[in-house]
Design a protein around this nucleic acid. Structure first.
Length: 281
DNA sequence: GCCACTGTTAGCAT
DNA sequence: CATGCTAACAGTGG
């Protein structure tokens, strides 16, 4: 579940470990991982220093000398790991990429059980020229609440689907959408355009609160997610609805329900998150 | 063994 | 055009 908080945690862990180091060989163990890149493939990386590591939406960007940027999308099960020592343990069968450094120190590995993840090797202005990045909406933590309200107003679909639309806002995934809707006491199937001014204000606050708390807790580890050092996150312990079907709502005690919204498993409290209707509460 | 389900999203249908 | 499903893949749990 690498959503924004998980990718942010990975990026923060990776940066001090690889910035300033010079890349040696990059071994692409699963060719289709590299969706796009220069003719010679990842050979272009050899001899380049890593200048920075950043996050955009759910993607991790490794910026290298000479305007080369590696863009990783972890999709469902991708992991970016800083292995303890070069060649200490051989890569397992799910390791798709190994990047070695000239100093012989820890190598960077990309593992991905389901093979949905991808890598782009971009030259020049990655944010501007790379479609995968250029089409992303604004960062939820950098978004003012006026702009947030504006973006939702013109939406026809359900609020949960809107939160998951990366072109609208970048980085929110299934878990955090459910958690922030619960925090804001909004039913996930509410049409985005039907939210009151007050609803939107609460949702904006909840979005910031939930994402910040999740980053603080180093993400949610339900299954595959671990940070760059292989450590699990802690935020799953603070989930209030996600994955808690049948368990009592932390606010009212009624059982949490699971429905499907836009093909995604959706958890909510039917009492605290009433469906929007003209009826008095 | 078989079937249902899983954190994402591109691509196609409506 | 916008929105809604499904498939892509592999593993896990019932």
């Amino acid at each position: 579940m690498p959503e924004l908080p998980e990718v942010e945690t990975i990026v923060r862990g990776l940066a001090p470990g690889i910035c300033g180091r010079t890349i040696g060989r990059a071994e692409l163990l699963f060719k289709p991982l590299l969706r796009r890149g220069p003719k010679g493939g990842l050979a272009v990386l050899a001899g380049r220093q890593v200048l920075g590591v950043r996050r955009r939406g759910k993607m991790a960007l490794v910026e290298c000398e000479g305007g080369i940027t590696l863009v990783f999308h972890l999709k469902m099960t991708g992991q970016l790991l800083l292995a303890v020592a070069q060649g200490a343990e051989p890569p397992d069968k799910h390791t798709r990429l190994v990047v070695k450094f000239r100093d012989g120190g820890p190598e960077l590995r990309f593992r991905d059980v389901r093979k949905f993840g991808f890598l782009l090797c971009v030259r020049g202005d990655a944010e501007g020229e790379c479609a995968e990045l250029a089409c992303l909406g604004p960062e939820p933590l950098g978004l003012g609440h006026e702009e947030f309200a504006l973006a939702l107003r013109k939406r026809k679909g359900r609020i949960k689907s809107s939160l998951l639309d990366q072109t609208l806002i970048a980085g929110i995934g299934n878990i955090y959408a459910d958690e922030m809707l619960f925090d804001a006491a909004i039913h996930p199937e509410t049409p985005a355009s039907a939210l009151s001014k007050n609803d939107v204000a609460r949702l904006w606050e909840s979005m910031r609160k939930v994402l910040a708390a999740a980053i603080e807790a180093k993400g949610s580890s339900l299954r595959d997610y671990v940070d760059a050092d292989g450590r699990a996150g802690e935020f799953q312990l603070s989930h209030e609805v996600y994955g808690r079907e049948g368990e009592p709502c932390v606010r009212c005690g009624r059982p949490v329900r699971r429905i499907v919204v836009g093909g995604r498993g959706t958890y909510f409290c039917p009492r605290c998150q009433r469906k929007k209707r003209g009826r008095a509460v």
